[in-house]
């Protein structure tokens, strides 16, 4: 499956975004604040998604700010770091 679509589905499932469909999330729109409106608790949940699904460890949520900007930045980071 396309990594970006897979990521969107995982976000919707893990973050209980019941009202949102994968096609509603644009690849380049900000996930936090404006855009999808995620918050700091969601950031922790995304760290768990990366750990459990892609074996990527992020030790400090503050470091993740740029990585978690959008679906595009997340996908790029996963492709570069997946073991």
């Amino acid at each position: 499956m396309d990594l970006k679509l897979e990521l969107k589905e995982k976000l919707i499932d893990q973050l209980n975004l019941e009202e949102v469909k994968p096609e509603d999330i644009k690849d380049d729109e900000p996930l936090f604040g404006e855009g999808l409106g995620l918050d700091s608790i969601d950031a922790l949940e995304i760290i768990v998604i990366l750990d459990n699904n892609y074996n990527i460890k992020i030790g400090n949520p503050e470091e993740a700010r740029d990585i978690f900007h959008s679906i595009n930045t997340l996908a790029t980071y996963i492709e570069a770091n997946q073991k």
Binding site: L44, E45, I47, V48
Partner: peptide, 10 residues
């Protein structure tokens, strides 16, 4: 060593 989702704890 594996991470746990924090939402339910909060």
């Amino acid at each position: 060593g594996s991470l746990i989702a924090p939402g339910a704890f909060i």
